[in-house]
């Protein structure tokens, strides 16, 4: 009785360790797939991929996937909010004007000079958790959903970062935000 139990145990242990080594690659693939899934369903493309007008109306232009506000579209003044409206987006849905000034969505591709190429996993995790630019800088502005996304688990954030580092790098230098003071000065001087 005892003996047969210990044999079972050994067999199980061998099976477990074999599946451990065989799964290293599988696990990486799983992480990547999980990251892609999370980035897709959490809606990152809604804001970080510039929109174009397709046959069925506005849609994300996946040839510029997650590359942020296009540097070719210069914006120097905020939208004028009317009546009950508090915020406005531009045609690519990558520039957002509101009480915070004007924010431009970041380039999330792995380009070293203009995207997340020099980031580490901990830069990414701290950015989402603390809501600070590059994990240590100024406050990240709306509409980046930090208050919701900070609830992602460490594992989810690791998977998302792994995926973001695997997508095609696109060189696109996103402009710095316009603060409310600058924005209103520009608006009144028009």
């Amino acid at each position: 009785m005892n003996r047969s139990r210990s044999i079972t145990l050994i067999v199980l242990a061998i099976a477990a360790s074999a599946s451990d080594t065989a799964s290293a690659e599988e696990k990486a693939a799983d992480t990547l797939a999980r990251g892609k899934y999370l980035v897709t369903v959490a809606g990152c493309n809604d804001c970080h991929t510039p929109w174009k007008v397709g046959p069925a109306g506005p849609e994300p232009d996946m040839s510029r996937m997650l590359s942020g506000h296009p540097e070719s579209i210069a914006i120097s003044a905020p939208a004028t909010a009317v009546g009950q409206w508090i915020a406005a987006a531009n045609t690519t849905n990558t520039a957002h004007s509101g009480p915070w000034g004007v924010s431009f969505t970041a380039n999330l591709t792995p380009d070293a000079e203009t995207g997340l190429g020099k980031w580490t996993q901990s830069t990414f995790t701290q950015t989402i958790r603390t809501g600070r630019h590059m994990g240590r800088g100024r406050k990240i502005l709306p509409p980046m959903p930090i208050p919701m996304y900070r609830n992602f688990t460490d594992e989810d954030l690791a998977a998302m970062f792994t995926y973001l580092q695997s997508i095609p790098a696109i060189k696109n230098r996103v402009p710095e935000p316009l603060s409310p003071a600058v924005a209103s000065a520009a608006a009144t001087s028009e």
Binding site: G101, R136, R138, E176, S179, A181
Partner: peptide, 10 residues
């Protein structure tokens, strides 16, 4: 001391 620009940021 514009919060988006200042160094240090905090």
């Amino acid at each position: 001391r514009n919060p988006n620009t200042q160094m240090p940021p905090i």
